[in-house]
Computed example of a mutant assay.
Amino acid sequence: MTQPDGRRTTLLATLALLAMTACWGSTFFLIKDLLDRVPTVDFLAVRFLIAGAAMLLVAPRAISRLSPEVRRRALVLGSLYGVAQILQTAGLAHTPASVSGFITGLYVVATPLFAAVILRSRISGATWAAVVLATVGLGVLSLEGFSIGYGEAITLVAALLYAAHIVGLGAWSKPADALGMSILQVLVIAAICTAAALVTGEPGVVLPDRGADWASVVYMALVAGAAALLAQTWAQAHLPPTRSAIIMSMEPVFAAFFAVLLGGESLTGRMAIGGAMVLTAMLVVEAIPRRKIEGEVPHIAV
C-alpha cells in the first residue's frame, strides 16, 4: 500500500470509528426511556438477536469463509464483549449512571496498558498525555460524585474487558475477515445476553409491546449494533488499539450532544468543558506522527 493510500485508509478508519461512536452516543436517551418498560438484559438479548439474524441474512456464508483460527478469535472477542455488557448493566443497577459512564470510559487508560504488556507496543509520551486528557475530560463531563462499592467494582471489570476487546480486535482483525468476525461476535453476544435473560429474569425473554419501542430496538440492533460492530472490526484492522480507544472516548460527548439536541436536557458548562477536553485529546492523538513502532500491531496467537 502506498503512503497516500495508507493515509486515506487511516482517515476512513478514524471516520468509521467516529461514526460508530456517534451511533452509540445516540442510543443513551433511547435506552433510558426503553428500560422503564423492558428489563435491561432482555433488551440486550433482543437487540443482538435481531442484529445477528440480520447480518446472517445479508451475508450467510461470511462465517464459513473464516479460518478455524479466526473463528476461535471471534468467539473470544464476542465473549469478552458480551460479558462486559452484562457486568456493565448489572453495575448500573448499583451505581449512578454518571459514575458508570466514567468508570466504563476508563478503558481509555486500560487499553494502552494492555497494549504495552500484551502486544509490547511502545506508547509515546504524547499519546499518554492524550489518554490522561481524555480521562480527565470524561470525569468533568460525567462525574458529580464518586464512591467505591459493588456496582463500581463490577463496572470497572467491564471496562477492563472492553479494553481487552479493543486490544484483541487491534491484534486479530483483518479487513478481509471483518464481516465474518463481526457476525460471529454478534451471535456470541446474543447467546450470552439471552442466557443471562433466561437465568436472571422471568421465564422467557420479555419483548417490547409498543411500536415505538420496537423501532428503537431495531435502530439499536441494526445501526448501533450490527453496523457499528462491523465498522469497529474493520477500522481496528487499520488503527493501533490506543488510538482507537481515544477516538471511542468521544461516546459520552456524543451522548451529551444527543441528550441536549433530542432528549430535552440542558447544556451545562461542565458538559462543554469536559467534551472539549475529550475532543482535544482525540485531535492530539490524531496529530501525533505515525512512527512505525507505534503503528504496527502484531497479531498474537490464541
Score class of each variant (00 low, 15 high):
residue 2 T to R: 11
residue 4 P to T: 07
residue 4 P to F: 00
residue 7 R to V: 12
residue 10 T to K: 06
residue 14 T to K: 09
residue 16 A to R: 10
residue 20 M to I: 03
residue 22 A to W: 05
residue 26 S to D: 04
residue 27 T to S: 15
residue 28 F to A: 04
residue 28 F to L: 05
residue 30 L to Q: 15
residue 36 D to N: 12
residue 37 R to Q: 14
residue 39 P to K: 14
residue 41 V to N: 09
residue 45 A to I: 08
residue 48 F to W: 12
residue 50 I to F: 12
residue 53 A to S: 11
residue 53 A to R: 01
residue 55 M to R: 03
residue 55 M to G: 04
residue 58 V to E: 11
residue 59 A to P: 07
residue 59 A to E: 13
residue 60 P to V: 06
residue 62 A to I: 00
residue 63 I to N: 00
residue 65 R to Y: 08
residue 65 R to N: 08
residue 68 P to W: 11
residue 69 E to V: 11
residue 73 R to L: 14
residue 76 V to W: 11
residue 77 L to N: 07
residue 78 G to L: 07
residue 78 G to V: 01
residue 85 Q to N: 15
residue 86 I to Q: 11
residue 86 I to Y: 03
residue 87 L to Y: 10
residue 87 L to T: 02
residue 88 Q to R: 08
residue 89 T to R: 05
residue 92 L to T: 05
residue 92 L to H: 07
residue 97 A to M: 09
residue 98 S to H: 10
residue 101 G to E: 01
residue 102 F to R: 01
residue 106 L to K: 10
residue 108 V to L: 14
residue 108 V to I: 09
residue 108 V to W: 00
residue 111 T to L: 05
residue 111 T to S: 00
residue 114 F to A: 13
residue 115 A to S: 15
residue 117 V to N: 10
residue 120 R to F: 14
residue 121 S to N: 14
residue 125 G to C: 12
residue 131 V to S: 02
residue 132 V to K: 10
residue 132 V to R: 08
residue 133 L to P: 10
residue 133 L to R: 14
residue 134 A to V: 04
residue 134 A to P: 06
residue 134 A to L: 01
residue 137 G to Q: 09
residue 138 L to N: 02
residue 142 S to A: 13
residue 145 G to E: 15
residue 145 G to D: 08
residue 145 G to P: 14
residue 148 I to Y: 13
residue 153 A to F: 11
residue 155 T to I: 05
residue 156 L to Y: 12
residue 157 V to A: 15
residue 158 A to F: 07
residue 158 A to H: 09
residue 158 A to D: 01
residue 161 L to T: 01
residue 161 L to D: 01
residue 165 H to M: 06
residue 168 G to P: 00
residue 170 G to Q: 08
residue 174 K to E: 12
residue 175 P to M: 02
residue 177 D to V: 06
residue 179 L to K: 08
residue 179 L to M: 08
residue 180 G to H: 02
residue 182 S to C: 02
residue 182 S to Q: 04
residue 183 I to F: 11
residue 188 V to N: 00
residue 191 A to F: 09
residue 191 A to C: 11
residue 193 C to N: 15
residue 193 C to K: 07
residue 193 C to D: 15
residue 195 A to H: 03
residue 195 A to K: 03
residue 195 A to R: 05
residue 198 L to M: 12
residue 201 G to H: 05
residue 205 V to T: 06
residue 207 L to E: 06
residue 210 R to T: 14
residue 211 G to E: 04
residue 215 A to D: 06
residue 218 V to P: 03
residue 221 A to S: 15
residue 221 A to H: 01
residue 224 A to V: 00
residue 226 A to Y: 11
residue 227 A to V: 03
residue 230 L to Y: 13
residue 232 Q to L: 07
residue 233 T to W: 12
residue 234 W to S: 02
residue 236 Q to G: 03
residue 237 A to T: 11
residue 241 P to F: 01
residue 243 R to Q: 05
residue 247 I to F: 06
residue 248 M to G: 04
residue 253 V to G: 02
residue 255 A to G: 13
residue 257 F to N: 08
residue 257 F to D: 04
residue 261 L to H: 08
residue 262 L to T: 09
residue 264 G to W: 00
residue 271 M to N: 13
residue 272 A to C: 04
residue 272 A to T: 14
residue 273 I to C: 08
residue 274 G to P: 06
residue 274 G to S: 07
residue 275 G to K: 04
residue 281 A to L: 02
residue 282 M to S: 07
residue 282 M to D: 10
residue 283 L to T: 04
residue 298 P to W: 03
residue 299 H to T: 12
residue 300 I to L: 15
